[in-house]
């Protein structure tokens, strides 16, 4: 289980995350929604100990990543929003390196890599340097990197960005399958339809706080909203602001 207990993170005067308490359980896919700068990525980075909370605590299957980030990173498969790879290594070389870091035995690594290469249609890209790959293929390599050690907790920051529809579909199924196996699956997205299609639970962040959380159908009912976009707008209080923006746009 991934647990946030009253966590706060400030950058100067700005509270990126402000007193968030959240439990992300295994067995279902959880989507983290929110406008830019709402604290989604900060919250995810806290899980692998890259960002340490100023107060509060994060628990990754009982491990505090602020104290033992290495252990937390062993449990988590993390794919960041901005893909980071070795530009002058090929995906095959990157996976070999990651296999050693995560202590995946050689034959097992081979099996897993072949499986994901087939799923994401990466075969032709495996011998190219990562620096030569397109944005979408770089994303795929980053996703496979997060999945290679078959983590108990999967944390994916904007994983659908740049993916073609086929690969997006594969990823959705993979996330569902992993959740079905009892793993924790948390991902962030701006695409509300995606969240609605994949996630069984939605957490809406706004200005560093949890504005709403629950199953999409529950939230719709609770906020008397027609769809998830409506839920999002109501929960974040953006509907009025947006209406004024749209009016001003047409008035120009």
């Amino acid at each position: 289980m991934l647990k946030y207990i009253d966590v706060t993170k400030r950058y100067g005067d700005v509270a990126a995350v402000n007193g968030v308490s959240l439990e992300v359980e295994g067995g279902r896919v959880t989507a983290l929604l929110g406008p830019n700068g709402s604290g989604k990525s900060t919250l995810m980075k806290m899980a692998i100990g890259v960002v340490k909370p100023d107060s509060g605590m994060v628990e990754v299957d009982g491990v505090n990543p602020a104290e033992d980030p290495c252990e937390a990173r062993r449990l988590i498969g993390y794919s960041p929003e901005d893909v980071v790879l070795y530009e002058s290594l090929t995906p095959a070389e990157v996976f070999s390196f990651l296999g050693e870091v995560y202590e995946v035995p050689g034959s097992e690594l081979e099996r897993r890599v072949r499986r994901y290469v087939r799923l994401f249609k990466l075969g032709e890209e495996m011998g190219k340097l990562c620096g030569e790959l397109s944005r979408g293929n770089r994303r795929k390599v980053s996703l496979v990197s997060a999945l290679l050690h078959e983590p108990r907790i999967l944390v994916l920051d904007e994983p659908f960005t740049g993916l073609d529809p086929k690969s997006a579909r594969v990823l959705k199924e993979l996330m569902r399958k992993m959740a079905y196996e009892g793993r924790v699956v948390l991902f962030s997205t701006h695409i509300l339809e995606l969240a609605e299609a994949v996630a069984e639970r939605v957490v809406i962040m706004h200005r560093g706080r949890v504005a709403a959380e629950g199953e999409p159908s529950e939230l719709r009912e609770e906020l008397k909203a027609s769809d998830l976009e409506d839920v999002f707008m109501r929960a974040t209080g953006l509907s009025e602001e947006l209406e004024e923006l749209v009016k001003s746009l047409w008035g120009e």
Binding site: V50, P69, C70, P80, V84, Y86, V101, Y102
Partner: peptide, 10 residues
């Protein structure tokens, strides 16, 4: 740039 990846790994 690859060093950033190391920060995500154990």
């Amino acid at each position: 740039e690859g060093a950033k990846l190391l920060y995500h790994l154990p």
